[in-house]
Amino acid sequence: MGQLVKRSFDAEGRVTLSYSNGDKTTPLTIAMVDFDDIRTLEVDAGTVFKASDTQSRVLGKAGEGRFKQLATSSIEMSNVDLSQEFADMLVIQRGYQASSRILNVANQMIEQLYENTRGR
């Protein structure tokens, strides 16, 4: 009897469980799914999707048919360029500030016009 010490995946999606007594088992394989039309997916909650049309669903294993092998022991890089997003945020903030000033000046001009024409 041993304690589970490590879980790992291979390129075909097989899950290998390693135990403290040296035993290793491969009891599971990760299922893959693809859709002929991804527009049939609906957001269920946050980043969870559900398929409204299960007819276009294709199940399989990694490395078989249309499914690629898994890239194990790797880290996916972010697809967001933080420096570009920060620069865009500053541009938007400056645009907002300029728009706010324009609205304040327009409001002051309308008030001044109203004051000047009130007596006539």
Rank of each mutant, 00 (worst) to 15 (best):
P27L: 02
R7I: 14
A31F: 00
K50Y: 12
S56G: 13
Y19W: 08
S18I: 01
Q69L: 10
Y96M: 09
D37W: 08
D23G: 04
F9W: 10
K6P: 00
M77K: 15
D81E: 13
V91D: 12
Q69K: 15
S74F: 01
S73N: 15
V33W: 00
T47F: 02
G95H: 09
V43K: 14
Q112D: 11
Q84S: 14
Y19P: 07
S83W: 04
S74Q: 14
Q108M: 09
R118A: 14
D23H: 05
G60C: 06
V91H: 09
S20H: 06
K68R: 14
Y19E: 00
V48L: 12
E42T: 14
L59V: 05
S99T: 05
V33H: 01
S100M: 04
K68P: 04
E115T: 13
E85W: 09
E76S: 14
A51F: 00
A51Q: 06
D81C: 08
E111L: 11
V58M: 06
K68C: 01
K24T: 14
V105Y: 12
S73M: 10
I102A: 13
A98Q: 12
S18N: 03
E12Q: 12
A51E: 07
N21G: 05
V80S: 08
T29E: 05
T29L: 03
I102E: 08
G22Q: 07
I102T: 13
N107W: 02
R94E: 12
G2E: 02
N107E: 10
E12G: 07
L70T: 04
M109V: 08
L41G: 08
S56D: 09
T117Y: 09
F9N: 11
D10C: 07
V15Y: 01
R101K: 14
T26Y: 01
F49R: 09
G65D: 05
V43D: 02
R94Q: 12
V33L: 04
M1E: 06
R14W: 01
E42I: 13
K50C: 04
R101A: 08
L28G: 02
L82V: 14
L4E: 07
A11Y: 06
A45I: 05
P27W: 03
D34Q: 13
S18P: 02
S18F: 01
A87Y: 07
R57D: 03
T40L: 07
R94G: 04
